[in-house]
Amino acid sequence: MLRRKQFWFAIMAILPTFAIFGWVRLFPIIETLRLSMHEWNLLSKNKPFVGFQNFIELFSDNQFMDALTNTAVIAFGAMAVTIPMSMVLAAIIYHRTRSRFSGFYETAVFIPHVVSLVPAAMAWKWIFDAKLGPLNAIIMGLGGDALPWLFDPVLSVICIIFLVSWQTLGYGVLIYLVGFRNLPKSVFEAAQLDGANGFQSFLYMSVPLLKPITLYVSVVTLISGFNVYAQAYVLASDTQGAPGRQVRVLVLDMLENSFQNFRVGYAAAEAVILLSIVLLLTMIQFGLLRGKGGR
């Protein structure tokens, strides 16, 4: 009886939010994905049904396959950088909460997340510059050879991982900081009495207790990693006479296909594939980070 009451409360409470979602997310998404089986040029009144033709074409499309690989590498790369770095950084900042600089730390780490990309990209182009950039200066100082960061097919992908991580680090740190602050303090006091040092209690207590938060950060960074496109676009644009290799990513390919090549159905088919892949990956993340409280 009690369960029944709870069930109806849950349904009634979530209904308004679900209704808004239905209107501003589910409806337009379904409208768009439906087009993956059609051909439409954005303007014409007829949208002929073409079955799976768009999908069949996609798998023999080099440009799409290239975009898919690049995007996956960027998403996993950015995730691999962001999660450990933001967790450790948040731990240190949390440890120094009482420091008079804590406000500065949090702000400095977070601000890159909210700055417009186009003017900031100029600095990044300078950092990656093959001849005069600080990155190559460091490498050469260490005895290495200067690398064509923005032009090599592999290195240019790494540049994007750099840029994405710079932007998402602040996001991760913010979330982890909240997580740290919400951890039950009594457990740590007990551990301290048992002689655990700061590092041990971080590794054996905080990390497992923060599993739900880690799940959140990893899902969010992976999904946003698969959504990158502005970063790839600004690094290739030729402001200041410093162009770079255009790294093709999925969203860039989709937007180009719908708004410049006028193949909305084809772009929708790409979106269906993106949705299937990322949904599967997210399910795997949920499975991996399950455990006590790790739903």
């Binding site: 979530i14 679900f18 979602f21 501003v24 997310r25 589910l26 409806f27 337009p28 998404i29 409208e31 768009t32 994905l33 899902v219 999904i223 698969f226 959504n227 496109y229 969203v251 989709m254 937007l255 719908s258 772009a267 929708a268 979106a271 993106l274 949705l275 990322v278 949904l279 997210t282």
Partner: peptide
Amino acid sequence: IFILFLATAIIPFEVYMIPL
């Protein structure tokens, strides 16, 4: 419902904003 919520985040807004 939760899975639906999360799934909508996977497709970038730019791609489906035309019907809206």
